[in-house]
Amino acid sequence: MTAILTRGTSTDHLGALESEAVHIVREVVAEFDRPVLLFSGGKDSAVLLHVALRAFHPAPLPFPLLHVDTGHNFPEVIAYRDRLVAELGLRLYVAAVQEWIGDGRLTERPDGTRNPLQTVPLLDTITEHRFDAVFGGARRDEDRARAKERIVSLRDAFGGWDPRRQRPELWSLYNGRHTAGEHVRVFPLSNWTELDVWHYIARRDVPIPGIYYAHEREVFARDGMWLTAGEWGGPRRGERLLTKSVRYRTVGDASCTGAVESTAATIDEVLAEVAASRITERGATRADDRLSEAAMEDRKREGYF
């Protein structure tokens, strides 16, 4: 392999965002004892994992992954997750919401949605394994509460986020000091936008689950979204199943994550569609975020991702 003077793409905005994220991931690994990376199988966690692998290349990834599993999965996403873990020789912990429901630590919600139920298994697992730094793929452009989130964000023993207690974050000096029982959430992709994430997936050929690309699927309409037919609550009486060409913009609890009609089957087509899109990804496809104007803020305060 011959060295080249400077690589063309390393100093443009995407290169700058990647360098910033790599710096953050390395800082946390250097200063914390037990980091873990939240891995949902969604595109943001796929990009975060990719950045982390690059941060330590050619050494192996120095921390495990944690999947908080709602049980309402797209089979394609689980298959993708398991393939990736096997190919890269990663360590994966799974915290299954079903287990918490099974032994009574959690009760199923009347609406059957499980995204909000992820918080307790997440916090219990953090405590059990004494994780002190939890990487997440959240971005500040996603939501107004997230816009105020720090890159390294302190959480109390209850996982709670107190916007008034946030430490000022100056220069690129991250203060992750914490006392026993506290941990930090770390968001290396804070300054990325949805479009940046897609550009990065294209540039680096980041593997993502196939459901992000257009495919034929049996869906039914509810609350202005296309939901997939499955064992969880759908379709109900009066909701008609149709076969459509759709793709997903986010993957979460399959019972409340909607698909958008699309024919974008390649990364370049997806990029073009995202660039032209006039609706934010959460607004389009996540019923849980449409519950109230402050939905995300409330969940963050309770210890959500």
Partner: peptide
Amino acid sequence: TGIDTPDGPVLRATAGQS
């Protein structure tokens, strides 16, 4: 003796690059 990036070695790196 070398400057590595995940894309391979480079001869030169500038402010801001990891």
